[in-house]
């Protein structure tokens, strides 16, 4: 029996690792498919796996979803109900800036390698004519590290996935301030399947859309912090891809 490979965008919070394994166990039972879950700690590792066609199922951020659909023939089946991806640009609470227009070239920016958050963050700095050329960009491994650099005065600005920023401790958040927050509402993580799973895609979609209806499905959703899944049509996916393309 074929074993399909599943992975998850490396921007998931570390406390959800177990949740993804629970999800995979549930998904295999619900669909009768053999699925191996491989979690990558960074985007590079995951990108290489995609390049080498070692990924069949992926829970991807909007940027990677756009690439997977356009270049690798993936199809978006579902998205977590009610969840959208937004980004925030953050500085220290006592920093001398209160708006994007106060920012000047030369500032030190801490950013993770999450491509969707980076794109949104840069879009929000554009009105102040800031870009990769005139900022000192420090790539960091995680959002808590970005927060630490801000608090230690080693970075002036940082980009966060809004959800990740909201999950920082209240003590940390009190020492930081949000300069600007994206309010797009049309970008979201999606559950995608690759061409090798074409004949099983409706089985997978149905399983996801009804997941919240059984106690075991509900438990697995809770371990991911999701309420349920909702359908993504090809038109919705296209719309999201166009947004990402426009922001590049």
């Amino acid at each position: 029996m074929t074993t399909f490979q599943m992975t998850v965008s490396p921007d998931f919070p570390p406390n959800r690792i177990a949740g993804w394994y629970i999800f995979n166990t549930w998904l295999q039972k619900a669909t009768g498919l053999n699925i191996h879950l491989e979690l990558y700690t960074d985007f590079e590792g995951q990108r290489q796996a995609v390049e080498e066609d070692r990924v069949d199922i992926i829970y991807a951020n909007p940027y990677d979803a756009a690439m997977l659909i356009r270049e690798k023939g993936f199809e978006a089946l579902a998205r977590p109900k009610g969840k959208v991806d937004e980004a925030v640009v953050v500085t220290r609470a006592d920093a001398p800036y209160n708006a994007v227009d106060d920012l000047k070239p030369g500032l030190r920016l801490a950013a993770t390698n999450d491509p969707a958050v980076y794109l949104l963050g840069m879009m929000m700095l554009e009105p102040a004519e800031l870009d990769a050329e005139n900022l000192q960009i420090q790539q960091v491994e995680s959002y808590p590290i970005a927060a630490k650099l801000l608090l230690q005065g080693e970075a002036d600005l940082a980009f966060f996935l809004k959800e990740a920023f909201d999950k920082l401790s209240s003590l940390t958040r009190e020492q930081l301030k949000v300069l600007v927050e994206s309010q797009i509402g049309d970008l979201f993580h999606t559950f995608l399947v690759g061409p090798r799973l074409a004949e099983h895609k409706e089985t997978l979609r149905e399983a996801l859309l009804h997941m919240h209806e059984t106690p075991k499905g509900k438990d697995a959703l809770e371990s991911l912090g999701f309420e349920g899944w909702e359908n993504v049509s090809p038109a919705e996916a296209d719309f999201m891809i166009n947004l990402i393309e426009a922001l590049k």
């Binding site: 879009m123 929000m124 927050e181 797009i184 166009n242």
Partner: peptide, 18 residues
């Protein structure tokens, strides 16, 4: 407004569809 995107789609004639 900061952080917002205005998005629209049109048909090939430029008539607004979204």
């Amino acid at each position: 407004p900061d952080g917002k995107l205005i998005v629209s789609t049109t048909d090939t004639e430029g008539v607004i569809t979204h």
